[in-house]
Write a protein that binds this DNA or RNA. Structure first.
Lengths: 204, 204
DNA sequence: TCCGACTTAGGTATAAGTCCCTAAATCGTC
DNA sequence: GACGATTTAGGGACTTATACCTAAGTCGGA
């Protein structure tokens, strides 16, 4: 597995020093960006990784970057900043940063943070992978098959579903068999589990 | 609905001033504690509410209180502190505080924070109530009924479950009927939904 | 000691779901 | 215009599940 670290800082010296520091660990792929804007332009095409983020930058600030990639589980951000204060730290943490560290940082603290960040990244991408797999399977279903799945989720029998969709129970059976095949499952419970994972479920 | 605010601060003047400020809103029930220890002693018996928490206190600090009630969705904490710094703010946010505000705070900022906090509290307690209801129903099941439910979750038929438990398929049918009754559901899908909600499900 | 819950099990009937076969109209794509 | 996917549907055999009936042994608590 490639462990990628993105450095986003407008200060050449900071980028260089971080690069040197991180190069101690030879399992890291390091990419540097000289502004938040430059990073945001490419963010959709990037592999998952850790983002070491400066707060004060011309153009998009660290907070802008954080809010943009807020819910994307592909990235875990650590804010590294020169002039920090409580308000900024709180904002950054609310925006989902793993940590907010004032420069000068200690090398071993940063290294430990990186490990934590990679651990969280893995958790997040496992969860995301499960959701993705489930959604991909659901997406294969035809509209009618999806209708039937919804009926099954609600706990209705083929007969009732047929009545609601105004089609023959026989046809419901066929859609049901089709969706089981497309979802690659052999039991209703497995099908429902995929529906759960894909967020198809009513929480009420 | 009673909206409760707990004030935890060792400074008499701060407690009094917060009390006065919050009294403007006559829908709030206000309780004050002069130390983190005093609050923690009662925390298990308290109703859900917002905790306005000082950081620097003799005995249990604000962070101690935060970590103790960390995962309890009954409370949402806002840290109000005199001498704050970035490190403390980050620790508090990591420990689950909704916000970290330095004194002197502005009254309207605090009021807005309270609204946000109550909103989050309601979300959390709705979710918690669902989980509780589900767990309570699962807890009613006898050991054998639970075994059968696990088999159903795995997508096995009565016959297979009977074989695995080394009992008659007939008996599995009875347990199954019993658990449907105890769970107050009429379909497998509803039963599985309760099992999901109770966290009985394998994520792998 | 008796009551209630849990565990176990059979019979019989009906309902529901699955698995095999076939078949045709529609609709968009190459 | 032919090909594939979608939607629609029937028959028949087989498997599963449900809904009713009864019944008995164990074990802990009132």
């Amino acid at each position: 597995m490639t462990r990628t670290v993105y450095i986003v800082d407008d200060d050449d010296a900071v980028r260089a020093s971080l690069h040197t520091l991180l190069s101690i660990r030879n399992d890291l792929l390091i990419r540097s960006y000289r502004s938040g804007d430059a990073f945001l332009q490419e963010v959709n095409d990037l592999d998952p990784g850790i983002v070491l983020l400066d707060f004060h930058m011309p153009g998009a600030t660290g907070l802008d970057v954080l809010t943009t990639m807020n819910k994307d589980p592909k990235f875990v951000a650590i804010v590294l900043t020169g002039q920090g204060n409580v308000g900024l730290a709180v904002q950054a943490m609310k925006a989902g940063a793993l940590d907010f560290v004032e420069k000068p940082y200690e090398a071993d603290v940063l290294m430990q943070l990186l490990d934590t960040a990679f651990a969280r990244l893995e958790q997040g991408s496992e969860a995301a992978a499960r959701v993705n797999a489930a959604e991909a399977k659901i997406a294969k279903l035809s509209p009618r098959e999806t209708d039937v799945l919804k009926g099954l989720i609600e706990g209705r029998s083929n007969k009732i579903i047929a009545y609601e969709l105004d089609i023959s129970p026989r046809t419901v059976e066929i859609y049901r068999a089709n969706l089981m095949e497309k979802l690659e499952v052999r039991s209703l419970s497995e099908a429902l589990r995929i529906a759960f994972a894909a967020g198809l479920f009513p929480n009420s």
